[in-house]
């Protein structure tokens, strides 16, 4: 307890409130308020010029008839699928390779980890060059069969898969690190016991490692899907034009941007973002449910 001048007792617990106040005020202003404001906006028509008009559920009803929204929803789901299952498998395999000691492990692991370092925009710029129709990736893949031109980004059928490949390349080393942390937490005695019982490395993995990695698996699954639902910069910078060609890489995050900052349809933009939020919340709830069971 400290004494204030005048003898009024000022209990030190109130200092706790003073310490948290700046942060609470900040989040109230720049997170909680805009979240609620955005929810309200999704029930209005607003173009930044004339005052917002309340339209009830119209924006949401219109979304499901909206061709762009249906494109974006389908593209996002395809992207999420491509950015999850292959990433889980490949990052786990990579972790199993780097989990055990061998010559040159530290250097090779650091090299493998490099894609985690550059910002997403850098990744998009570099891959835009590598995926030039007559560029380096074409010569490294199609070159073997005499193909000299592959329209990785200009072909609307191929572009979504190019996005997934680049995204997965950039994110796999990160998830490898998470798996490695999970593997490191497995008590070595369990593995030794399995080895003494004559279990081979494949059986040890299926029956010993994998059950122990349950919590890590839930984490990897949740992070990778939440991350993929929010994708934006990659589809903005990597394609020939943002979301192109022919809207084949238009994802929900990009549609929010398009409606909000190109068409100035703030109500529609907010409605799309509410749908995004609902999808992400659903993933989070599934994660919590699995965590409870794990």
């Amino acid at each position: 307890m400290t004494r204030r001048p005048g003898g009024v007792r000022f209990h030190y617990k109130w200092w706790g409130l003073i310490f948290v106040l700046p942060v609470v005020a900040f989040f109230a202003t720049f997170n909680l308020f805009p979240t609620l404001f955005g929810l309200w906006l999704s029930f209005t028509d607003y173009d930044l010029l004339s005052p917002p008009i309340w339209v009830g559920l119209d924006n949401f009803v219109n979304l499901f008839a909206d061709r762009l929204f249906r494109h974006a929803l389908a593209n996002t789901l395809v992207f999420v699928l491509g950015a999850t299952v292959p990433v889980w498998v490949l990052s786990l395999l990579a972790a199993l390779v780097f989990d055990q000691a061998f010559r040159g492990r530290d250097v090779l692991k650091a090299a493998f980890f490099l894609p985690v370092l550059p910002p997403v925009v850098v990744i998009a710029v570099v891959w835009r060059l590598l995926l030039h129709p007559n560029g380096v990736m074409t010569s490294l893949t199609g070159g073997w069969w005499g193909i000299t031109e592959i329209r990785w980004l200009a072909d609307a059928a191929l572009a979504p898969f190019s996005m997934i490949a680049v995204h997965d390349w950039a994110i796999i080393p990160f998830f490898m690190m998470i798996w490695l942390a999970g593997l490191a937490a497995i008590p070595p005695e369990i593995r030794e016991a399995a080895a003494i019982d004559g279990a081979g490395s494949v059986r040890t993995f299926w029956h010993v490692d994998l059950p122990q990695l349950r919590a890590t698996a839930v984490l990897v699954a949740a992070l990778s899907s939440i991350n993929a639902f929010q994708t934006f910069a990659l589809q903005y910078v990597l394609p020939t034009d943002p979301g192109g060609p022919a809207n084949s890489t238009l994802v929900l995050g990009l549609l929010v941007f398009k409606y909000g900052f190109q068409y100035f349809r703030m109500g529609d933009a907010a409605a799309v973002s509410v749908v995004m939020f609902a999808l992400i919340m659903a993933v989070t709830l599934v994660q919590l449910w699995f965590n409870r069971r794990a």
Binding site: P34, F37, G38, L41, Q230, F232, G253, S273, M276
Partner: peptide, 9 residues
């Protein structure tokens, strides 16, 4: 709350 939800408001 993902940032895309916040960006417009």
């Amino acid at each position: 709350v993902p940032f895309q939800i916040l960006v417009v408001p």
